[in-house]
Design a protein around this nucleic acid. Structure first.
Length: 257
DNA sequence: ATGGCGCCACATTGGCGA
């Protein structure tokens, strides 16, 4: 199966690109972030017409997550259980026997912002929930926009970004805690070209100059990682007219029947 | 020069993203 995560930065604007992505890449499951749509405005009919099902949790203007899948999603959970949060950033569902967890992790804005401790607390809640969830789901994939570049290899200019939000030690420590739960970074299971990123600033020709960060990830439990045959970042989607600032992250998994 | 781009909304400017 092919699974993907993509921060679309407004599904209203990016719907034609999503439909193109579904048609040309033929993924089985796609986790979307930053749909920026209330549920009553979600383009369910267009996605279903493309042969997919979809579950979603959205709000006006900001955030919003969705899981698009060929197969039906069951046991859908919106919001991290036990963590009170108005922001729609978390959606979990079981698809094809895999627990799919779609996350739009907080950005944090800057280390001195109120949004920064919220980001750390949000990750702590996610980690706490996962610890329990993993006991029930040996096949679990955590996909989305983590807003963390885990390593200096994931940063175009580590000196410029040193100690900034997205790379700070407390954030990277949260990412390491996810790995300590037994999850594996699918991208790093394979040899990868240097300076491969998933996000590039719209400004200053960030994409043309490849001034980016790798902040979108697909983490897999051991049984899925063992069955993972490829993990890539689909840079071509960033080359389109009016692109999202994020490119989709893709993992291919060959599970025994 | 702390800007630069893109998206959204009680819009023609400000909040936010990363």
């Amino acid at each position: 199966m092919k699974i993907a995560a993509w921060n679309v930065n407004s599904l209203k604007v990016r719907l034609p690109q999503l439909l193109d992505f579904l048609a040309t890449r033929q993924p089985d499951t796609v986790c979307l972030q930053e749909t920026k749509l209330t549920d009553d405005n979600f383009p369910r009919a267009e996605i279903e017409a493309a042969g997919y099902r979809v579950v979603f949790a959205g709000q006006k203007t900001y955030n919003g997550v969705a899981i698009v899948s060929r197969s039906e999603a069951s046991d859908v959970v919106a919001g991290i259980p036990g963590f009170a949060d108005e922001q729609k950033r978390f959606l979990a569902a079981t698809v094809d026997g895999v627990r799919v967890v779609c996350v739009y992790c907080p950005n944090g804005q800057s280390l001195d912002s109120d949004k920064y401790p919220y980001k750390l607390a949000w990750f702590d809640a996610l980690i706490g929930w996962l610890k329990d969830e993993l006991t029930r789901h040996p096949r679990l994939a955590l996909l989305g926009d983590y807003n963390i570049a885990p390593d200096d290899r994931d940063v175009h200019d580590p000196a410029v970004w040193k100690d900034c939000v997205l790379v700070s030690e407390p954030e990277r420590s949260r990412f390491q805690s996810l790995l300590a739960l037994g999850l594996q970074d699918s991208f790093r299971l394979f040899e990868q070209p240097e300076k491969t990123f998933s996000w590039w600033d719209y400004r200053m020709m960030g994409f043309r100059r490849n001034q980016g960060l790798r902040i979108d990830h697909i983490l897999l439990t051991a049984p899925l990682a063992a069955a993972c045959t490829a993990s890539t970042i689909d840079r071509d989607m960033r080359k389109l007219e009016r692109p999202s600032d994020h490119a989709p992250v893709v993992a291919e998994i060959s599970l025994p029947a």
